[in-house]
Amino acid sequence: MKITEITTLLGGHIVCGKARAYISVQYGFAADLLSDILTLETEGILVITGLCTLQTIRTAEMAEIDCVVIARGKKVSPAMKDLADRTGVILIEADCSVFKASGILYASGLQPIY
């Protein structure tokens, strides 16, 4: 599923990595625990989280997560933006809950990892 399409479905907006938003991801994963994200071995993952910290971005970099959706209307900090820009992580802000974002994307065909 294309990042642009995902952004529209969530009524969110891309705060970092707009130029790469044409790429597609195959899998979705929701987590508020960073070690959970670090256990993933698949490629082409989008993570939905309510954890809006610099470490969320750092973890995405390490785990090679293509795109992170920050749910629950939380606002990305300038430091997070800067790190996402430097590491190529696409960042989306969305007002809905993690549950709703997951439901919408699952129903639209984004696959679970397990």
Partner: peptide
């Protein structure tokens, strides 16, 4: 900060 699940060391082993 999103840590403290007790998964780091098992994850390192893996």
């Amino acid at each position: 900060m999103g840590f403290g699940a007790g998964m780091g060391l098992p994850n390192m082993r893996k």
